[in-house]
Design a protein around this nucleic acid. Structure first.
Length: 295
DNA sequence: TTCCAGGACAGAA
DNA sequence: TTCTGTCATGGA
């Protein structure tokens, strides 16, 4: 295995938190080693404090994938500055607590197709089931890499599967979404290049053309696959947190019965600033962490 | 057994 | 534009 030693500016970094916080699926942990697919390669990674040991890719690829160029203290400072501007108060203790529990998380830079495929599979499921579903799809339809090791199914492979077979991999009603999206990607080979070139709102609109991609999945793909840190995926957990903790300070929304998706996402962007995607991930992750810590 | 989960979608109001 | 019912299924 190759070695990468994290410098001071690359801290904090927590491999376990980063891979178990619901932003990536299909990666498995055995002992201290995480193994999974990134950009068409099987990669293994382990962390011992500041030392990252890895195989399957070069340092540049790993560094980019793990988001190690992100300066977390600066990102936190940016978020705090925006919170202070919004509230005219020194600190948001609720957010500070969440940040302290999950500050080792990095927003990964996933391959766009692998990320899109994963989040179409994610709808209305829990993290464990999503992982199982993606594992089955990889096992049955992924490109064989070596004995017992498969990559993600390519769009061409997905397009060739009949719906009934696809449904057997726990995809349920998502099967036609996967097939339709694969078909679109096959017939529009420059699709991801186009997404990269568009502004956040236009990229989101374009992604939502795809079957099985609504506002939530589009935001996940933009955040985890296209480095759009202003993307704020609003799932049931984020909705509950924002409603319980922040609804009263959202202009015009005090007492509103149900906050719309855009109201929540737009609030997060104006409250947390350009790194709202990171802030969202700190909020999303901490419930599980707190349970593990029995807090 | 019931409820919940990193939702999308079509049709109705 | 917003609301509602439906889809499918493993896990708690």
């Amino acid at each position: 295995m190759k070695t990468l030693t994290l410098s001071e500016k690359e801290l904090p970094f927590d491999l376990d938190l980063t891979f178990s916080c619901g932003q990536i699926f299909g990666w498995k942990k055995s002992g201290n080693i995480w193994k999974g697919v990134h950009n068409g390669r099987i990669i293994t990674i382990r962390q011992d404090n500041r030392t990252i040991r890895y195989s399957g890719c070069d340092k540049k690829v790993l560094y980019h994938f793990l988001g190690l160029k992100d300066n977390i203290p600066e990102i936190y400072q940016s978020i705090c500055t925006h919170i202070a501007k919004f509230t005219h108060e020194k600190q948001d203790l609720f957010f500070l607590e969440r940040f302290l529990l999950s500050k080792g998380i990095r927003i990964l830079r996933q391959d766009p197709w692998e990320c899109l495929f994963s989040f179409i599979c994610s709808s209305n499921s829990n993290v464990r089931t999503i992982g199982k579903r993606i594992g089955l799809l990889m096992e049955n339809y992924g490109t064989c890499c070596s004995i017992g090791e498969n990559l993600f199914p390519e769009p061409l492979a997905m397009g060739a599967i009949d719906e009934e077979s696809l449904r057997k991999c726990l995809t349920g009603y998502r099967a036609p979404y996967l097939m339709g999206t694969a078909e679109y990607i096959i017939t529009h080979p420059d699709f991801f290049l186009k997404i990269s070139s568009l502004s956040y709102p236009d990229a989101k609109k374009e992604l939502m053309i795809l079957p099985g991609v609504g506002p939530k999945v589009a935001d996940c793909v933009l955040l985890f696959g296209f480095e759009r840190m202003e993307a704020v995926p609003v799932d049931i957990r984020i909705r509950k947190i924002i409603t319980a903790q922040y609804q009263d300070i959202i202009p015009g929304e005090k007492g509103t019965k149900t906050l719309s998706y855009d109201t929540i996402a737009d609030f997060c962007r104006s409250y947390f600033g350009p790194y709202a995607g990171y802030a969202q991930q700190y909020l999303f992750a901490t419930r599980d962490v707190r349970q593990e810590l029995s807090v």
